[in-house]
Amino acid sequence: MTDYMNVSPTPLTRRAMRLSRSPGRREATRSRFAEPVNAEPEPSEPVLFAGHTRPEQFFFFCSSVWIGLPMVLVLFADTLGWRRRAWTSPTPWLAGLANLPASFVHWGDYHEHGRKQVVDVALAGLQLLTLLGETAYGCGWFASGAPDLAADAADAAADVANATADAAAAPTLLTAAAAAAPSPLLMASPEERQLLGVLWAALVVFAWLDVFHPVHSQQLLGYSTTSVTGTRLHVRRSPRLARPQLTPPADDHPKATKRLARGADAQHSFVISCL
């Protein structure tokens, strides 16, 4: 006589039992098995960055114009009612001048992993690096020893007065750069330095999210952010790692968990080596 109680359940039955543990999973089970014939495929969550969509491309094309905003304010400070700082290095603005048309051309005719994208990303990185150098110089991050804040504030006030006079006499960028004051600290107040530090920290976080898309942004933000630099990094990966699993598989098998960990480690090491 067959003992029906000792018959092992089929895989489908085991899966249904596992999915029915919690109310949310019971609902998922019901929705999954409600219409087995006419059920439409569920929209899959994009786990791998495969390029920018057309709406994103159009927005990035339009927002490229912001690269030139500080440059225009520096060049036409008097006309635009802008009080220029005492010393302004032309390097970030020259990099921005080169990056502006490159960004328009790149996003106007966007192709993944194209040459235009490489040029645009390189120029944007150059602009960020020069801007970081100017911030470090203006805030005195490279100065040896503790900065004398009172003397720096007095020097900065004198620089502002000199710059205003210079701007009235010859409002050109290179003239202002040539009339640079000897004071190394241009950000007079410590609050301003703190603000710049916070902004740079936030920029680093966004750059990190951008490069390491979509693994970390999916975990932190709940959805995947888009990436420019990550495009090349993800595509250059080996085909075995091209489809990382962000969530463990349905059956929490120890071997599957180990495979997931190995894939994440390999991805991290590859991205770091590329950087």
Partner: peptide
Amino acid sequence: PLAQFGLRYLACSIGLIHSGWP
């Protein structure tokens, strides 16, 4: 596209601070 938007906005904001003030 949060990361791209944040990158561009922060870069422009830092540039604005370096360029001066109203």
